[in-house]
Write a protein that binds this DNA or RNA. Sequence first.
RNA 1: GGGCGCGUAGCUCAGUGGGAGAGCACUACGUUGACAUCGUAGGGGUCGCUGGUUCAAUCCCAGCCGCGCCCACCA
Length: 877
Amino acid sequence: MLDKTWRPQEVEQRIYEAWEQAGYFRAGRVDGDPYCIVIPPPNVTGSLHMGHALNNTLQDVLVRWRRMKGQDALWQPGTDHAGIATQMVVERMLDREGTSRHDLGRESFVDRVWSWKAESGGTITNQLRRLGASCDWSRERFTMDDGLSAAVRKVFVELYKQGLIYRDKRLVNWDPKLLTAISDLEVEPTEQAGHMWHFRYPVEGEDGAFITVATTRPETMLGDTGIAVHPEDERYKALVGKFAVLPLVGRRIPIVADEYADPEQGSGAVKITPAHDFNDFEVGKRCGLEMINILDAHARLNENVPEAYRGLDRFKAREKVIADIDALGLLEKVDDITHTVPFGDRSGVVIEPWLTDQWYVDAATLAKPAIAAVEDGRVQFVPKNWENTYFEWMRNIQPWCVSRQLWWGHQIPAWYGPDGTIFVELTEAEAQAAAAAHYGAPTELRRDEDVLDTWFSSGLWPFSTLGWPEKTPELARYYPTDVLVTGFDIIFFWVARMMMFGLHFMDEIPFRTVYIHALVRDEKGQKMSKSKGNVIDPLELIEEFGADALRFTLSAMAAQGRDIKLSPQRVAGYRNFMTKIWNAARFCEMNGCVAVPGFDPASLKLPVNRWIAGAVAAAVSQVDRELAAFRFNEAAGAVYRFTWNTFCDWYLEFAKPLLLSNDESAAGETRATAAWVLHRILLMLHPFAPYVAEELWQRTGGDGSVMLQSWPETDFLDADADREFGFVIGLISEIRSLRSETNVPVKAEMAAHFPEADATHQGWIGTNWELISRLARLSGMETTMPKGQGAAEIVVDGLRVVLPLADVIDIDAERKRLAREVDKLDGEIARIEKKLSNESFVSRAPEHVVEQERERKEEATAARTKLGAALKRLSAA
RNA sequence: GGGCGCGUAGCUCAGUGGGAGAGCACUACGUUGACAUCGUAGGGGUCGCUGGUUCAAUCCCAGCCGCGCCCACCA
């Protein structure tokens, strides 16, 4: 006997363990067409947040559904080493211990990270298990596994040898806290209040003449090597070719003409600091200006500035420069402005453009086939509008800086000879062999200390996890994968890189569909992130409401195109839904409804059973269609509505009298039907709420595990039964509404008169009288007009239904109700008549629309006549 | 500056070229042997504003207002 409520906490983990041990998540169990999703690998040392919960729920829905459809589904799991993020976590731990990675040294530090990974790496995967994620854990991968690391090296070496990876000295985004380069994508431009300082630079040889420049970063003036003006700017034409004298430094700096200078901006003259500004770097190259690096790695002023400033932090230096310029009388003015300042997304400090040697990927070349694959539809984004975002970025893609000055990650397979010659090889031995060949003798080599950007290895994920570069059977069978499910925030970081690498190395797209889901935001609409500390813990929701409730909530809210703001109340609502299903099953159990082998809806006799069998078949096929189109919310909604509003609210109520009936054939048929429909519900529920589906499946006589069942497609519909129950439900609803509106006491019973019923209506009422009378609380059925004064009247499906007052109805309320109904119908009739009398409508609207309006008018008119007469009689009484 | 999206019931949000929806909240009634994590009934919206296209616009188009996000740039 089922308990009164579903207690997920007690069974979820047991069910999950049974599934996993039985091997139900494993790929290759069936011969069907392959279906593959690779998980967006979470950070190995991370923990589950709402974004993961949504992302993995949707993947699990797809995978479980496809398995039921007979496909050989592989959901490939794994985790990401998350270079910067993980290194920072461990560094913070060391800091608390009063030590640092530099104290430990590289090797010990990396060992320490590995042991932290061993310690905490299982957290996130265990949390995914709590959620119910049916990943093939036997194939779990980690981006720093031997195999995946080999793939990384091979990709690096090949790209290098193809000229698509190169070393270059240029400005990078330098993080002065983490002491590493970062990519453009890791920089967060942030709007801030700031100042624009206007400095006067004396013009050389022209006594008392100044040229005014403006800057938001006064300290950089110590590295100025020129001043640019627009070539067409009349104000400055005479100065081009002359020199200014840089205050505080004394350096002669040329005044050059360059189109970069905007006459509309500030004074029209712009100071050029080529070593510390991306635009100035370009101007400097064009105009042959000197590049003077004035900062060290910590963004302190270095030896290239006058002694007074050396060693100062950049912000201290700023204050001093301003004060000193002011003291010289060269500070023209200071404006308050708001401007955008680049911050490191991990470190939260201001990023410096800094001149260093780094490794770059020629992304523009790799992007071309990746753009084409989306253009020609081989890869489709859902929703489609994300393709614009993808194109926009890919078509303007910049060289990708892939080297990081970190210790945790894939060390770059590059070795340097004593003279700086670079040897890029898969192994040190190969590098040494190459060096020996190059130099004619064995030579001492120094390995590049840098590691690769984390996204370099994640970019290989769809094929590296399947065994590449080995030619494995899995790679042949599951690549290209089918769907990638992810948030739009990593389209650039990850999706674009997988496209580029997949097409380059596999010569084939990595996935056919990219499903972009919403972001789960906090209540202010802010993106949730660890560093902001605004994450909501899905585990708490799971503990309170169960994984199924959370999964169902996320599925139901995953409409395309809008972000999700989650409220626990909503999850509670879907927890109630789980309880509802549980109790429907409990009802079936209590009434002996057990699944009958070989049940065939076509052999059903009772219209009520034929009706519900058709309705569940329609619901199943709708869920199927919606999932095929990635409309998770519609799919979940269809399950919800059918289960609650159709099966529980109507069918089970109809079933009650039948189950208690002496007519054993009717009772038996209804028991079998209820059990059959319940099982269909559990099956279509399974992708969304697998735990409750499994528990109920097994406890209501289901065969084996719900996970092993086929998707319950049934081609059954009895249109007559459908119409019949449309009428029955309408009749009951109308009578209930009448009772309520005319203040009929709940316990009072009334007889219903159907004086004008035709054979069809009579038949429908007759066969279903028991159901109708029970749900509408009717004491009897007559085919005559009631005797006596006054009666309430309604019209259902054109049928006049008369309910004698019998002292139970509030006559005044009934008069008002009728008057309201008549008014409403008059309004509707007028609206339709206006439409139908419009010549253009009749001639131009499709025939079926016109016909529909005519039918509506007819119906409304008939009802209006009957209710009008009823009102008249009642008023006379 | 370029792009994307949003504005629908008190709240959170679905949805549609042809009779405005859900959940929660609210009101009234209700423990008939599945479920009070429930049932029945009900109130509540000029579908942001203004134009246009159309026989017909909440939906398509344009402009505007308000909000959010992404990209680029800002001496």
